[in-house]
Every structure is written in C-alpha cells, then in structure tokens.
Computed example of a mutant assay.
Amino acid sequence: MPDLLDKTNTASGVWADTAYRSEKNEAFMAKNGFVSKVHRKKPKGKPMPERTRKANALKSMVRSKIEHVFAHQKGPMAAIVRTIGKARAETKIGLINLAYNMRRFMWLERRRAPA
C-alpha cells in the first residue's frame, strides 16, 4: 500500500477493500496523515457485528460510485490499456476518462431536456 498512496494528495481518506486492511497498512496510514476508510473483515466463525456492518455499508456507498465508473469504462467502453511506457498509458487513460465524461454529460443533458 505505501507504493499506491501519494503523500502530496490533499485528500486524506483512503477507501479500499478488506484485502488492504492489515496492521502494517493501518500503521502506515496513521503515520503519514491518511484516514483509513478501509472495510473491516468479518470475524471468522462469528456473525458480523452490527456496528461494523453499518460502517462497511456507509463506506460501500462511497466506493460504489467510483467503482461504477471503472466498471463502465472496462465493460461497455471496452477500455483496455496495453501500452509501453508510463506516458503513453497516462495519455490513454486520460482519453478514456475524457470519453467517459463526455458520454456521462450527454446522458445527463438528455435526462434534463424537456420532452
């Protein structure tokens, strides 16, 4: 996780799946000023505590909004990045994001337009 987080990013929240919850990652985030929004795991052999279930549900509401964008780019847009070099990959990802934003804008405009 330390390689994934950018310390110059002004947003302090780190939203991630349970796979990223570990003592090492939590300590790294706390030490570097990040706020952990990582899902908590269900205890083995026990039901999920209600408090944990509700906290995970709130985190999922935020994460799902972001993950739907990536799912749309990967699915209907068939966006696959196969390039050599970071600059080319960044350019391709930027163009994919631009295309998604234009599609989303047009969809929102059609919804807003009077019939």
Rank of each mutant, 00 (worst) to 15 (best):
N101Q: 13
P2W: 04
P76R: 12
K44S: 00
R103F: 11
R110Y: 01
M106D: 11
R88Q: 13
R53F: 13
N56V: 13
T10L: 09
R53E: 06
K24Q: 11
L95N: 08
R53G: 04
D3A: 14
E109P: 01
I80S: 07
H39W: 00
K74G: 06
E109Q: 12
G75S: 09
R112Y: 04
R112E: 02
F105M: 13
A89K: 07
P49R: 04
A57W: 05
N56L: 14
K46G: 01
L58F: 05
R51I: 00
K74V: 06
P2R: 15
I96Q: 03
F70W: 12
I66H: 08
A79I: 01
A11E: 05
L108R: 15
K46E: 07
E23K: 12
L5D: 07
K24S: 09
T18Y: 01
H72M: 02
L58K: 14
K42L: 10
K92D: 03
R111S: 05
R53I: 03
E67L: 10
E23R: 14
V35Q: 07
S22K: 08
D6R: 13
K59R: 15
E67K: 15
D17M: 09
H39E: 02
K31V: 00
A89E: 00
E26Q: 11
V38N: 06
M77G: 01
V62Q: 15
G85I: 12
M77Y: 12
L98V: 04
Y20N: 09
V62P: 14
R53D: 05
I84F: 10
R104S: 10
R103Y: 09
K42R: 15
P49N: 00
V14E: 01
S60T: 14
K37S: 04
Y100D: 06
K41T: 04
A87Y: 04
R110G: 02
M106F: 13
R51P: 01
L108C: 09
V35H: 06
A115I: 10
R82N: 10
R63K: 13
E26L: 13
T18C: 06
I84P: 02
D3Y: 08
G13D: 00
E26Y: 06
R88P: 05
K54H: 04
Y100H: 15
I84C: 08
S64W: 12
E50P: 09
T83N: 11
G13M: 00
S12P: 03
E26T: 03
N56D: 08
R88M: 07
N9M: 08
A27C: 06
D6S: 14
S60Q: 14
I66Q: 06
A99G: 08
A89V: 05
A79L: 03
